[in-house]
Simulated assay, not measured.
Amino acid sequence: MTEQWQQDITKWISEKELLQATLSQPKRKDGTAAPKTVIRPIEMKNGLFYQFEYHFANKVTHDNIEEAKAAERAIGLLQENYRQALVKTPEADVQLLFNKKGKAAVLKKPPTGDSKKGVQQHNRQKQRVLAEGKAAPFLVELGIMTPEGLVHAKKQDKYRQINRFLEMVTDVLAYLPKDRELTIVDFGCGKSYLTFALYHLLAVEQQRKINIIGLDLKADVIAFCSGLAAKLGYDKLQFLVGDIADYEELQTADMVVTLHACDTATDAALAKAVNWGASVIMSVPCCQHELFKQVDNDVLSPLLSQGLLKERFSALATDAARGTLLEVLGYKVQMLEFVDPEHTPKNLLIRAVRTEQQGLSVKKWEQYEQFRQFLNISPSLEHMLAERWPNEISK
């Protein structure tokens, strides 16, 4: 027999009265149920859905459920997993308290806040470059979205990462030439989620003339990416097997992307970008070991005597040196967090754009020299770009 609270939930959802529901106090402590589940309506391109947001200790996952199935899911979760719920509607805030036999006590209070404002708030999705509800073919092929434009629950982190990257790109598009075809190189492209995203943004959505080259050492990965590009009809996106340091096929490039190029491979990619005159550089370094063996300063011995602290400090010093050398050459540099640390480990992204500034910055070079001498380091990027330092500012 259907209980009154079940009928109420079905009614609130079918009549679009449910603004938000928070399910809490799991019946079991074995971790099978999220400590808290939040349900809210979201408007998508193909209609109204209900987002079930599962809050675990160290992550948050989502399911977007069709309106017709949302009540059944909510009732099932309450029957199986939770001891209480707080449901907000325009008419009342309703609290459901379940006893050990599953019977519910229902408490109603006046609605909190402006109910109309609440509907707008909970129906509004965060505006993303790749909006949920509108299927992007490459995301469907890569298993991130369904053909209907819904993001798979297990791919939410990757979806956020791709959107964050495209947001960072969008911020600097004004620095790229607009009167000709753009050449973009992605060093160490891997499975190329972001390479495909970049092509989709610029070539498909913005209809810009571009040529993108993805480079990676793994032949099987390149074969997969090449096949997918052909399937999608991305005829100006090509993938090649090759090493960053040995790639000599281009004379110029407008944008260079390098993600997780290991140790001094990042420096090789940055040097290539500078020598090509790239207007935009997006680089996420990793595995930075070079300066760990070099950095030495008695004043910093409390820090450098601890291996873990020295490793982290050396990585930061490496990127500080890279950023400053790019600034010497007239680039405007920002150090950004690449991924929301709530969902995946923090990554640092070096974003550099070439400005109209003529000549080299003597002031920045002096800052770099003081920094280098203080730490007793000799960064690879400086040596890779040695011919760019004129006598008046070089060592």
Rank of each mutant, 00 (worst) to 15 (best):
V333D: 07
V140F: 00
D243C: 05
P302M: 13
P26M: 13
R160N: 07
S378A: 14
K346C: 00
A386N: 05
L300N: 06
P341R: 13
I9R: 07
A278Q: 03
E66N: 09
K191Y: 06
L86C: 00
F49Y: 15
E327G: 06
D340K: 08
R164Y: 02
Q51S: 07
G190F: 09
N123L: 14
K108V: 11
K346V: 08
I75G: 08
L23Y: 08
L217N: 10
Y159W: 15
T318K: 07
H260I: 03
L326R: 08
N163W: 00
Y193I: 01
L348F: 11
V299D: 03
G102R: 14
D186A: 03
H200C: 02
R372E: 14
L232K: 07
A271Y: 01
E132P: 02
T170P: 00
D296T: 12
K27Y: 06
N163S: 06
I377H: 11
L303P: 02
V257G: 03
H55Q: 13
A253Y: 03
I42F: 02
L150D: 01
L18G: 09
M335E: 13
S192A: 15
G76E: 12
R180I: 03
E66M: 11
E43G: 09
D114K: 12
G149K: 08
R388G: 06
V129A: 06
Y54W: 03
Q6G: 03
L291Y: 00
E356Q: 14
M1R: 12
S115V: 14
L217K: 13
W5S: 12
K116R: 14
A153C: 04
Q294P: 04
D93Y: 02
I9N: 05
S283F: 01
M282H: 02
Q51N: 12
D93E: 10
Q370L: 12
E148W: 05
A135C: 05
E148V: 06
G133T: 10
Q207T: 13
Q238Y: 00
S24P: 01
W365Q: 15
Q288R: 10
V362P: 00
D8Q: 14
R372K: 15
L240Y: 10
K155R: 10
N163M: 07
W276N: 13
V106N: 07
K209T: 12
I393L: 11
A321K: 01
D235R: 11
G118W: 04
E248N: 08
K101C: 01
L182T: 13
G323D: 10
V257R: 08
H260Q: 05
L308I: 15
I39L: 15
L86R: 02
